[in-house]
Simulated scan of single mutants.
Amino acid sequence: MRVARFKTPFEVDIEEVPKPKPGPNEVLIRVMACAICASDAEIIRGGNPNPGHEIAGVVEEVGEGVKRVKAGDRVTIYWKLGCGECPYCRAGFDVHCERPRYLAWNGYGEYVVAHEEACLPLPEGVDFIEGSLLTDTLGTPYAAVMSARVSGERVAVWGCGPLGLMCVQLCLELGARDVIAVDPISSRREMALKLGASLAVDPTAENPVEALRKFAPPLGPRVAICATRSDDAGRAAMNGVPPEGRVVYIAGQPGELDRHRWAYRIHYFKRTDYESVAELASRRGVRLKELVSHTYPLERVREAFEMRFRNPHKSLKVVVLPHEGC
């Protein structure tokens, strides 16, 4: 089988290696699509040459004791599970586990072995490219929007990359009155408007907090979702809601917070949310394909990473296709 081995995010070799065999409670997945995550570059720089966890594919073989899935099942991967024993897990917050288990890597290859607990069924009518977006790109924003309690509210979404654009859609789908998008990249502001935002603000052309207050006087929308790692945007998101307003951070958060405003950080979604996430995708409550700007075959994975990380003005979600037929 072919697999990508990274030296840096932009130095990669395609190697031929033996196809892995699933062990007890494991499955072999034929990878049909793997979406590039913003964390992949950090994972590579941290010394892991085999990133890739936003995976969708087909179960090809099951190991001893597997009961959840069978050969031929179409699946996506929930790549992080709690230990079940730490205080967070015992309290029902396994997504914040102190000793998480990482269940699948190496998605930029033709096959990957994963624990059966990592496998989530793809809904009917959702293809593999869309399926690779169900966890990180849909599930995590879903958790953020649910935490923000957006129904009936005006909501500011800071950062209109794939996560922010998904938040725009989810806010409207889940009952927000209006969504105001903030992003310095014109193509992303245009996409936010296409997906239903009422206003798109360029923070390099005007003071975004003042723009929000003009749209929702006198102190701006009561809810903000920050889907960018920019510290400036994180602070502005906090300043852009009134006292007792709510701010949810997805990609990060500034070092200092305001005790007069409610803030929460989301980094993944609960496995128990997947049924709702899958239902949204199945009934087309969100437009997944709108967020996919580029697809590449496995042999062009270096180009895929360059497009994702060096061309933010041109790219949104970039997906690698190790096999044909997606």
Score class of each variant (00 low, 15 high):
12 V>A: 13
92 G>T: 10
121 P>H: 13
157 V>Q: 04
149 R>Q: 15
73 D>W: 01
112 V>Q: 04
15 E>D: 05
214 K>M: 06
123 P>G: 01
276 S>E: 15
166 M>K: 07
30 R>N: 05
172 L>V: 13
158 W>K: 08
211 A>C: 03
33 A>Q: 05
254 P>W: 05
317 K>N: 13
160 C>R: 02
298 L>N: 07
62 V>W: 03
32 M>V: 05
111 Y>H: 11
39 S>C: 05
106 N>K: 12
244 E>F: 13
226 C>N: 14
140 T>V: 15
230 S>G: 12
142 Y>M: 13
2 R>H: 11
254 P>N: 13
286 V>H: 14
197 A>H: 02
191 M>H: 07
27 V>I: 15
274 Y>R: 02
166 M>R: 08
246 R>W: 09
45 R>N: 14
141 P>T: 06
43 I>S: 09
274 Y>K: 03
203 P>Y: 10
294 H>M: 03
60 E>C: 03
83 C>K: 06
227 A>V: 08
193 L>N: 00
94 D>R: 10
19 K>G: 04
192 A>G: 11
177 R>E: 15
290 E>T: 10
17 V>M: 10
199 L>E: 01
283 R>P: 06
290 E>L: 07
65 G>E: 02
219 L>Q: 13
260 H>R: 15
307 M>G: 00
75 V>C: 07
10 F>M: 03
81 L>A: 09
325 G>W: 11
133 L>N: 05
241 V>L: 03
149 R>N: 15
191 M>S: 08
289 K>S: 14
196 G>Q: 05
145 V>W: 11
168 V>P: 04
84 G>C: 01
138 L>Y: 11
75 V>K: 06
205 A>D: 02
65 G>S: 02
6 F>P: 09
43 I>Y: 04
281 A>V: 11
99 R>I: 00
190 E>K: 14
118 A>W: 04
142 Y>S: 11
225 I>K: 06
24 P>Y: 02
20 P>R: 07
302 R>N: 11
164 G>D: 07
138 L>H: 11
241 V>R: 06
36 I>R: 01
261 R>V: 12
73 D>R: 01
142 Y>E: 08
86 C>G: 11
248 V>R: 00
135 T>K: 08
196 G>I: 00
269 F>V: 12
98 E>L: 15
75 V>D: 05
21 K>L: 15
304 A>K: 07
129 I>E: 08
165 L>D: 07
68 R>M: 01
313 H>L: 06
88 Y>F: 14
181 A>L: 02
62 V>M: 00
38 A>R: 04
21 K>S: 15
125 G>Q: 11
91 A>L: 08
212 L>C: 08
247 V>S: 01
126 V>M: 13
175 G>V: 13
151 S>W: 12
152 G>Q: 12
98 E>K: 14
77 I>C: 03
146 M>F: 04
112 V>C: 04
39 S>Q: 01
238 M>P: 00
103 L>V: 07
296 Y>L: 14
207 N>S: 14
129 I>H: 02
236 A>P: 00
315 S>Y: 02
90 R>F: 06
126 V>A: 13
